[in-house]
Design a protein around this nucleic acid. Structure first.
Length: 613
RNA sequence: GGCCCCAUCGUCUAGCCUGGUCCAGGACACCAGGUUUUCAUCCUGGUAACACGGGUUCAAAUCCCGUUGGGGUCACCA
């Protein structure tokens, strides 16, 4: 008890910088962080970049930024300093914290094993072993690496193999103590997990390229960095006996293990970046399929010729065609595309797009581009996706905590301080869970509404600055009103820019919803249009143009003309937004401004007049 | 296929260790009603689960065994 109390808790999050920070990774990081903080220990961030081909500084930087954004601070590891390589700036006494910088350390422990005869060189090639393995599998036989030849090879044999040009890897002589070779891991979450001795095999600990394998590097690093609790996803559970075997061979103490349940999509598939490609493909294909047969080829041609314009919510050949011609002239003028709803021209060839649609690749840039064209949201997978979608970091962490852990007393909304206070392995679940975006969204919306109006505005402004700079600029002085109007209507910081799209486009770009027009304007002999005509004159006289004044004017107008408020507000709504949905009508007018309001009313009246005849 | 892990509403889960207070509680979603100039917010109510089969016991969601189902892993990727 005394020992336990004196032993400082050390946890670590050890991602491999081969891509962005995944939500699953974020949950692992969170639990490691929380456990360390609860016990006043150390939380280490270590980059597992032993895969030379796939690791990148870019990914490292992205992961560090995401960690910072989430608010998970680490005591040891790379330091995020913009403009500098994180490899050059690190903190902590047990560093360096990039495995690629620790090669001499691994080498030293490897030599130790080699000298003790606990590891040996293996000259069999991957290809040879793969053939064996496949054959075994085809015959439904269990396959295990057969160590007899290599374990007992003579120096002469090894020289001969080397002369043949074979490369060699190092394998662990994994036999355990004589007799019972069972490995029992006492997992903090799962309890006793046993692997029988005959499941052991001589796995690779050093690769042909001179880098350690993950297993070896992890064990050495965790031991040297004093990691006391290894908290990781359950997919690593069956690796644990390997790690224990290395620890035993090296004489390292065994840390505590806690394996976390996995997180999946709603349909039970893994949450991966392929999901984005899948959705983009689905939407694009469905749109193409829905088009008349004769047009499908034309549509593909258009897609191939690159349509860099956001096209509203429905696929429509005319709109794509219009968008393209608009885009082309814009390109001709300026070389690049800027302005409302237009994105930079991507550099795809028609074949690349065809290949993507035919599942020959999962390119994320193409997926993102198709999503823009068909106005679809791609599923969020990485922390940065959620950031872009307008989720608050605290809410993400809150929701992630609940995937596999809960405080047990029906409390669901909480902050990091609460998590740190209450976190423990005894309340971590054992079964996998499915990620529910609806619940996350609901939590986020709630958190947004809990914000003071000023805080909400500040956060929205920040989000707009990062992801909707054109909209921010367009709103100008109206931004505060805009923010206030959408505070109670948004579930994410991105919602206002979708829900309030009509505020952000040109007056003549409003598309009228046929149903709304019929119901609100044309019905009963066009009494809605009549109201609009009368209103225009009234509104033209309103001064100053602010919400209370507008409100009074509209109320007076309704009263004077013997109409209900709804008979006035709804026609106005359709005229200004094209639909029957918007924030309170006086706010809508105030945000829009007087000129736009009057222009849109006039345009709407004209359109209706033309249609009625 | 071998080995390992898991199993309560559609989803996340409480309850299980220390059987009875559970004809199973909460949250999201969904449905209905109320507030409201639309939408939303907000409020009220509702539908909905112990995978199956055996045991143990006076009594099982809770303990044991089996079946089924789901998942992980079997690389010179981590």
């Amino acid at each position: 008890m005394l020992d336990a109390a004196m032993k400082k808790v050390v946890t670590r999050f050890a991602p491999s910088p081969t891509g962005a920070l995944h939500v699953g990774g974020a949950r692992t990081a969170l639990f490691n962080w929380a456990y360390a903080r609860k016990h006043g220990g150390q939380f280490i961030l270590r980059m597992e970049d032993t895969d030379q081909a796939r690791s990148s500084d870019e990914s490292t930087l992205g992961i560090l930024r995401d960690m910072v954004w989430l608010g998970l601070d680490w005591d040891q590891g790379p330091v995020l300093e913009e403009g500098k390589s994180p490899k050059d700036v690190q903190k902590g006494d047990a560093g360096p914290y990039f495995q690629s910088q620790r090669l001499d350390i691994y080498r030293k422990y490897l030599d130790q094993l080699l000298a003790a005869g606990k590891a040996y060189e293996c000259y069999r090639t991957q290809e040879e072993l793969a053939v064996e393995r496949d054959a075994a599998r085809a015959e439904k036989r269990d396959w295990k690496y057969d160590p007899t030849v290599m374990r007992n090879a003579t120096q002469a044999q090894r020289d001969a193999w080397k002369a043949e040009g074979r490369s060699c890897v190092i394998r662990l002589r994994n036999e355990g103590p004589p007799g019972a070779g069972d490995i029992v891991v006492n997992d903090e979450v799962l309890g006793e997990v046993k692997v029988t001795g005959d499941q052991r095999d001589d796995f690779v600990i050093f690769k042909g390229d001179g880098f350690p394998t993950y297993h070896f590097a992890v064990v050495v690093d965790d031991a040297l960095m004093g990691v006391t609790h290894v908290i990781r996803a359950q997919e690593h559970l069956s690796n644990t006996p390997k790690h224990v075997a290395i620890q035993e061979a090296l004489g390292f103490a065994r840390p505590s293990y806690a394996h976390l349940p996995l997180i999946f999509n709603q349909d039970g598939t893994k949450m991966s970046k392929r999901d984005k490609a899948k959705v983009a493909r689905l939407v694009a294909s469905a749109a193409i399929r829905k088009a008349p047969l004769g047009e499908q080829i034309a549509i593909m041609d258009i897609l191939r010729s690159v349509a860099p314009k956001r096209l509203g919510d429905k696929f429509n050949l005319d709109r794509i065609a219009a968008a393209i011609s608009g885009a082309q002239s814009a390109v001709a003028e300026s070389g690049t595309l800027t302005g409302e709803g237009v994105i930079d021209l991507p550099q795809f060839t028609g074949d690349e797009i065809s290949d993507f649609l035919n599942k020959k690749n999962d390119r994320l840039d193409i997926a993102a581009w198709l999503a823009l064209i068909f106005a679809t949201e791609l599923p969020e997978i990485n922390v940065s996706d959620f950031r872009r979608s307008g989720y608050l970091p605290g809410v993400i962490l809150n929701y992630l905590s609940l995937l596999g852990w809960n405080p047990g007393d029906n409390v669901e909304r909480f902050d990091l301080a609460f998590l740190v206070e209450r976190f423990g392995f005894d309340r971590v679940g054992k079964s996998n869970s499915k990620f529910d975006r609806d619940k996350l969204k609901a939590f986020n919306g709630e958190a947004l509404r809990l914000l003071s109006p000023d805080d909400f505005e500040a956060k929205l402004r920040e989000h707009a600055g990062a992801f909707h700079s054109q909209d921010l600029e367009r709103l100008g002085p109206h931004f505060s009103l805009f923010a206030a109007a959408y505070r109670e209507r948004s579930q994410t910081l991105d919602d206002p820019f979708h829900l309030g799209r009509f505020f952000l486009i040109n007056d003549d770009a409003i598309a009228f919803d046929a149903k709304a027009v019929d119901k609100v304007l044309k019905k009963d002999g066009g009494k809605g249009v009549t109201a609009l005509r009368e209103l225009e004159a009234t509104l033209a006289k309103v001064e100053p143009w602010d919400a209370p004044t507008i409100h009074n004017a509209i109320e007076a107008f309704a009263k004077d003309t013997g109409r209900g408020l709804g008979d006035v507000a709804q026609p106005l709504r359709v005229a200004l937004t094209g639909t029957s949905v918007s924030p309170p009508i006086h706010d809508t007018l105030a945000i829009l401004g007087k000129d736009a309001t009057l222009a849109r009313i006039r345009r709407c009246v004209a359109v209706c007049a033309a249609e009625i005849g």
